[in-house]
Computed example of a mutant assay.
Amino acid sequence: MKEMRSIRFWFLQSFLMTALFSSLFFFIGLQIYLSIVKNPSINVATTFWLLIYVFIILIIVGSYFGLKGSYLIKGRLGDILIYVSTLRSGKFSERIVTYEKDEIGLITDELNQLAKYIQEQVHSMQRLADEKSMLAQSAHAAAVMEERQRIARDLHDAVSQQLFALGMMSSAALRMFEIDLDKAKQQLHEIANIAAKAQMEMRALLLHLRPIQLSEDSLCDGVIKLIHELKNKTNIEFNASVDEVTHLSKSAEEHLFRIIQEALSNTLRHADASKVKLILTEKENYIYLFISDNGKGFDWQKAKIASYGLKTMRERCEEVGGIFKIRSKKNEGTYIDIRIPRKEN
């Protein structure tokens, strides 16, 4: 990679080279004058002193205008660079102020038009997501939810029987204390661990197959209900801060709620976490969602290729014009950051 040089360096270089060549041409002109005129008013020594004087003056003037010009150009280009970074972060509603109607001014105008176009596309994506959600609800929602509930009931009955059998095995193991105390205790611990894991797996699967519906509830109420249910059925400690979100379409609320369900389900099934933190808030023009746990984590570079759950969450987020970020490292937990532009009236 080539070494990057400041634009100020190029400005100074060009002005100093101009000063050098101007001085050189001035000196050549004096020498031509001395060679042509028979009785010149100056001599060769004087031309050297004039050369030095003119060179110093041009160096000072060139440095001043070079620094001044480079400062102005660099400042305007710096504003453009900051604005491009702002657009890359997803803040398409921001605009850059155009000061001059020159080439750089034309670039800023084009960037503003590009940001406006992208913002319109995001709104179009949100409208399309709303229409898609309405069509899906009218055509498939009832049948899909009915089938999920049926499967959930069957699964619940089967797993409950297994858990009951584990309980019976635990009772039988307790009676083994008189025969082999150490073996009985070991068997009890194993049975208890298996039962706890089976219950956790069942609840996570039920969260997939029989999800809580928002119905007429707001996103805030739905998330609170979901967390309350998980608190009652698991040993995980939840630290939740859920604000009322008012600038989201019904479709975007549904997508965001499904993302939360998927993330919490993955935590129950895979993370072995004891603490979960969830923050849902609305600031300025965006809806922010943050979910983290203190579980065992995973290599997200590999998981993002193979995991259907991660792919689903990312697709849901992008369908409503959002930005999905996930960070995880083994034995250091998992962190999910989501930002969705709010719906304008």
Rank of each mutant, 00 (worst) to 15 (best):
I56D: 00
R76H: 08
T86Y: 09
K74Y: 07
P40Q: 04
I36Q: 10
R76Q: 12
I73N: 02
N39R: 05
L87K: 02
I52T: 03
S70D: 07
Y64W: 06
G66D: 05
L30E: 14
G66T: 03
I56Q: 00
F27R: 11
T86W: 09
L87N: 07
G75L: 00
P40K: 02
L24N: 06
Q31G: 13
K74R: 09
Y53C: 11
V61Q: 01
L50G: 08
L20G: 06
R76C: 03
F55N: 02
I28H: 03
I28S: 04
S22G: 06
L77Q: 06
G66A: 06
V84H: 03
W49A: 12
L58G: 02
V54Y: 00
G69I: 02
Y83K: 10
F27C: 12
G29R: 14
L24F: 13
L34Y: 05
F55V: 03
K74I: 00
I36D: 01
V84L: 14
I80M: 13
Y71T: 07
G62W: 00
G69E: 01
S41W: 04
S85T: 12
L72A: 09
S35Y: 13
L87H: 04
L81W: 06
G69D: 00
L50V: 03
K38E: 14
G78D: 15
Y53G: 11
T18C: 10
T86F: 07
F26H: 09
A19M: 10
L51F: 15
G29T: 13
F21H: 03
L77F: 06
S85F: 11
G29L: 15
V37F: 11
T18F: 13
L72S: 08
F65Q: 05
I36F: 06
G66P: 00
S41F: 13
P40L: 07
G75M: 01
Y64A: 11
Y64G: 04
Y71R: 10
I82C: 08
F65R: 05
F26N: 09
K38D: 13
N43Y: 02
V44G: 05
S63W: 01
L30T: 14
I56Y: 02
S63F: 05
F48R: 11
F55I: 02
S41H: 07
A19H: 05
T46R: 12
L67G: 01
F25G: 04
N39L: 10
L51A: 04
Y53K: 10
I82Q: 14
I52K: 12
W49L: 13
F26E: 09
I52M: 12
L67Y: 06
G69V: 01
Y71M: 08
I52C: 10
T46Q: 15
L51M: 12
V37A: 08
K38R: 14
S63I: 08
L51D: 00
I57V: 13
P40N: 04
L58T: 07
I36Y: 07
P40H: 02
I60A: 08
Y83L: 10
W49Q: 13
I28N: 04
L87T: 08
I80Y: 05
T47A: 15
F48L: 13
L81V: 13
V37M: 13
V54H: 00
L20W: 08
S70G: 07
N39H: 15
I82H: 14
L81N: 13
L77W: 06
F21S: 09
G75K: 04
T18L: 14
